[in-house]
């Protein structure tokens, strides 16, 4: 009885707005419980991520971010090779996927009939759902031998392969988001452009693309976020070599990304060791980068 009264007073009352005070309203209890558990679970998970990477930051400080040697057994933890590898992989993926995806969006939104457009869209949505490990399988068995033979490389495992696989994975995201943005432009705006007497090309570059740009931009940032966190496919094709590319634009040698390092070394690092905490540091960097991208994507008025 006592417990119940305390519960009422401290758990349920504060949640109930003053206007409608149904005591122990089951709906409100349900909603409150759900919200509290969601907030708690997310906070606990992310809190422990920060907490367990703390020993590492305390021991080595922020300069690990530009250290270039990663030898866990010698207590050398330099993050630079993996960060550079991640950035390269993202860049390559974008260079391939952005023109293709954007062009596909323009073609399907401006040049296709409604039926075809819907068909393409459904196809793209389905493709966006293909699991990354399946892309990894394709990369390993189709892309790597192809790269190795066509470019006459020592091995097909390299940043280019990782970037290409990633581009395949983010293509649907870019395309669907850009298509949505183009479709959202109202008929009036299109017609007023027509009335100005500009041709198709000018209309596209002067009216449609600038109008759709905020949507396209969030699409790009979302796609970047997805590529950043992709693990399985990258891990299978990147070669996992913890070394800075030499020279820095050499993308045809095995390299490492943040995610592939976590995937490779997570099992071996014993819980509580410095190595474990360093990998948690990698995870934290990933999370911070991804949240940054996501915030940018939401902040529509930032670049216009």
């Amino acid at each position: 009885m006592m417990v119940r009264r305390l519960c009422k007073k401290w758990v349920i009352y504060p949640f109930i707005k003053h206007k409608v005070r149904h005591f122990l309203n089951p709906l409100k209890i349900f909603v409150a419980l759900g919200c509290v558990s969601a907030v708690l679970s997310v906070l606990v998970l992310l809190g422990f991520l920060i907490q367990s990477s703390l020993p590492f930051w305390q021991a080595f400080g922020i300069q690990v971010l530009w250290g270039d040697a990663w030898y866990p057994y010698e207590s050398l933890f330099g993050f630079l090779p993996a960060i550079v590898g991640t950035v390269w992989a993202l860049l390559i993926a974008m260079i391939i996927a952005l023109p293709c995806g954007l062009a596909a969006a323009i073609v399907s939104s401006e040049m296709m009939s409604e039926t075809w457009r819907n068909l393409v869209r459904v196809g793209m949505e389905i493709l966006a759902g293909i699991p990354s490990v399946v892309y990894g399988l394709i990369g390993l068995w189709l892309l790597l031998p192809f790269l190795q033979h066509s470019l006459d490389l020592l091995t097909g495992h390299n940043l280019l392969a990782a970037g290409m696989i990633l581009s395949l994975m983010i293509l649907p995201t870019i395309m669907v988001m850009s298509q949505d943005a183009l479709q959202a432009i109202s008929e009036e705006q299109r017609e007023s452009a027509m009335n100005l007497g500009v041709d198709w090309q000018q209309r596209l570059f002067r009216v449609l693309l600038p109008q759709a740009w905020p949507g396209i931009r969030s699409g790009i940032l979302l796609a970047l976020g997805r590529a950043l966190g992709e693990t399985m496919a990258v891990m299978l094709v990147v070669g996992s070599m913890d070394r800075l590319p030499e020279p820095f634009y050499n993308i045809l040698e095995p390299a490492q990304t943040l995610t592939s390092r976590i995937g490779r070394e997570m099992g071996e690092a014993s819980f509580g060791s410095l190595h474990f905490s360093a990998l948690m540091g990698c995870g934290l960097i990933l999370a911070v980068m991804a949240m940054g991208l996501s915030l940018l994507a939401q902040h529509r008025s930032l670049i216009r």
Binding site: L144, L154, T155, D242
Partner: peptide, 21 residues
């Protein structure tokens, strides 16, 4: 070293796919 492999199977497949490993 030019590449890092994991399990024996993975390494075996890299060797068999290459001509210079």
């Amino acid at each position: 070293a030019s590449i890092i492999s994991g399990s024996n199977n993975e390494e075996q497949s890299i060797v068999s796919r290459s001509n210079n490993a």
